[in-house]
Every structure is written in C-alpha cells, then in structure tokens.
Design a protein around this nucleic acid. Structure first.
Lengths: 126, 126, 126, 126
DNA sequence: GTGGTCTAGACCACC
DNA sequence: GTGGTCTAGACCACG
C-alpha cells in the first residue's frame, strides 16, 4: 500500500489516512476480510503519531468500513456498496451545490462549467 | 443588508462575513464608494464581537475589496472585475478537481455529474 | 491655490494639508506676509471638517511657518530658509537610510539605486 | 534569533515582527522548512501578547512566507525569490519617488542625493 | 504540546 | 463618531 501524507495540506493528517483507506476499499484494492496494518507499525511507516492512526481507525470503524478485534488486528468489514455509493453521491451533491452557487455569483456560465468538468474528467482518464 | 451568521457552521464567523460581503460586491449590490456598516454597530447587529467583524474587514482590505480610513469609515474600493473573476475561476477549478477525483473512485459517471450539475444550475435559476 | 485631498491616501488629511502648504511656502508661491484662507471657507472648499484644517494650521504655527492673529486671519511668517532646508535634509537622510537598509537585504545594488534615482529625478524635470 | 521590539516606535509591534522575520528569510538565515518559534513561547520571550505574534504570523502566511499547521507548528515555506525581489523593488521605487519629490521642493540637487546615498551605502558595508 | 477562533475591554489617532 | 492596536483570557481541534 502506498500512502501519501502531506504536512503541507490544510487537511488534518488523520483525515488524509481515512480518505486514502476508504479509496482503497472502494476501488477494491482492499476487500472484505483483508487485514489493515497494525497501528504502531503503520504509524511508524507513515512517520506520524500512533494517536493519529488510532483516530483514523476509530472513524473508519464508526462509519462501518473496518472492524477491530482486540488482539487479532483490524479488518475490512463487509460493505453495502450501494449504501456507500449513495452516501458519497449526497456529499458530492452538496459540494457541487456550493460550487454552482459561487459560479453564478461570478458569472461563470453553465457551458463553462461543463467544459471545465469535461477537461477534469478526461485528464484523469489517462 | 441581510446577513446570516451561523455559529453552527464549521466556517469561522469572520469568514462568513467575508464571503457574504464579497458576494454583495460581485453581484453589484455594493458598488464602488458605497460605505459599509461601522464595525461596532455591525458587530452589535450581528451579535458578534467587534474583533470578529474587524478581522473580516481586514481580510477584505488585504484582498483589495474595501478600504478603511480611520475617522471616516469603510468603503467599497474599485474592483478589477476581470482579475477577480479569474481568481475565482481558479479556485473553482481546484474544488471541482477534488470532486471529480472522488466521483471516479465511487464510480459516478461523467453523465451522472452532468445531470447533477444541470439540476443544480437550473434550480437556482428559478 | 490648488489643493488635492485624497481620502484614499493612508496619510491623515490634516497632514496632507500641512505638507501642501509647506510646499507652497518653500517653492515661493506663498511669501512672508501673504494671507492664508480663513479656516471655515478653506474647510468648505476642501470638503473637510473645520477641525481638520484647524489642526493643520496649528501644526504649521507650531513649526513657525505661519502666524495667526485673532480676528485678522492667518499669515505666512518669515522663514529662516537655511534652517528649514537643513531640517528637511535630515528627515530625507533618515528615510533614505531605511530604503538603503531594505535594498541591501533584497540584494539591490548601489548602481541599481543610482539608476532608479536618476530616472525619478529626470522624470519630474519635464 | 535576536529580535528587537520597540513599543516606542510608531510602527505597530506585529509589523516589527513581520519585517524582522522577512529579513531573516531574505538574508537566508531562515531557510525553507525551518521552524519558527511557537506563538506562545515567542510571545513570552518578546514580552508581548500571544495575539500580537499570531497576527504577525498570519500576515506572513497570507503573503506566502510561512505555513502554519495546527498541532505541528509554523514553518518557512518555499520562496519565489525573484517574485519577492520584484515586489520589494516596486515598493522601494515608490518610496524613493516621494523622497525625490520632497528633495526637489527643498532645492536638494541630484548630486547631493547621490552623495547622501553613497554615504549610506558605504556605512553599512563595514 | 501546537495553532485557530472568539470573547470583552482598553487606549489611541483621526474626523 | 470612526478604525487601528494591544491586552488577557477562554475553548477547540490536532498531534
């Protein structure tokens, strides 16, 4: 697993860990029952505090992505993909709503937005 | 002028003030030379601290939206609209990039995004 | 007399009045015994507060540039030009010192400064 | 690091801190990635309020000189030296323009200015 | 421990 | 009256 932790980012470190693990699960790189790194060794390899990793795992657990079994480690739990997808769709909708709001105020047209979106979608397609 | 300050929002109060004043200027509701409320009376009406309003004004000043003069008050300064629009376009581009990234991971297609965008753009058009 | 008061300037208005009157005296446009505008009418024509003009006159009086005679008006007093010139030379020396300090830190060479100075001196020569 | 804060100066304290840190960065005494003192301890050693130091750091951050991260501290960010130098050159040009203006009014010749400049430049060369 | 936000209250210069 | 600066506290999220 490759993890990139940027201390320059405004996003807190624990959040960076959370999103990257979520992405691995959603992409299928991590499947149900797979084990996650032990907190201590993970923290060491990421060069962050143990507490930070612990916090990330706690959040993932609370959101149902992983399960921790004392003494045995941490594992990816079963996902209701449709539910996850729906939740993600909602957050994206909200974020997009904010962007549209700002765009209108600045007189950015619908067509300009489409162009921008098209570019961004193609770029990452590589 | 109607201002909505929510202390529940994750956005700091001073930032809420900043964006709302920016919007008023960009929409043309506030034009060059118009005077803004005095920090003390504004703070009172918003039920926030004087310092909070002052911080908002300071940021707007540093970004060139307003000018403050001791003993005279605070005024909307002349805007280089093209420059402002370009800056806004860039920030929107970055935000949209993040959304596209998340969308791909969740398997949201380009067409679904277009639909979402279309809905949001129409809704506000009322 | 032409006076230019800019509310955009960071300099206080009373100071703008002081320097402009000083300049007129130093250039010889105002000579010993000449009368200055009455405070009230002056304030009206400059569109500033009476108190502001009053403050400017007070400073000029304290520095020996003008004399006020109650009921008769305000007049330019006799100047010891050599003394004035020397005082000005000192303040310029201090300001120039600060500029040189900043220049050195930014690696601006003596020659670059000379060039800049030459340009500025020629430009206004017109 | 040696810092000199004078409460007698007309310059506000936070501005004194800003310029001194800028100078250290420009001189190369502080390099990219170096950490700055924590606001609380710094405030204590300078015998000023925490807020005052924070304001200085905030300005430096907004101008791109440093980056602050909650829980981690404050660090010197990477500099576009050419851009910084150009900005400084412009401000110096403006200040020098004002000085030249005053000089002309007082009949200080171009040669006198050169002499003054030469003296000041040599003095600090020591 | 770190920085970010908010508070109340003070003094000053300017108009 | 206005804004600008500084103060001493407080609470929060992050590591």
């Amino acid at each position: 697993m490759e993890f990139i932790i940027s201390s320059k980012s405004k996003k807190p470190i624990y959040e960076q860990i959370v999103t990257q693990i979520k992405e691995l699960i959603l992409k299928g790189a991590l499947k149900e029952g797979d084990s996650l790194p032990a907190i201590r060794s993970f923290a060491k390899s990421l060069r962050v505090s143990v507490i930070t990793v612990q916090k990330a795992y706690e959040i993932l657990q609370r959101e149902g992505f992983i399960d921790s079994a004392v003494g045995r480690g941490t594992f990816v739990s079963s996902q209701d993909m449709e539910k996850v997808r729906e939740a993600c769709f909602q957050t994206i909708k909200v974020k997009l709503g904010e962007i549209v709001h700002e765009s209108k105020i600045n007189g950015i047209s619908f067509d300009e937005m489409i162009d921008l979106l098209k570019n961004l979608y193609d770029k990452g397609a590589k």
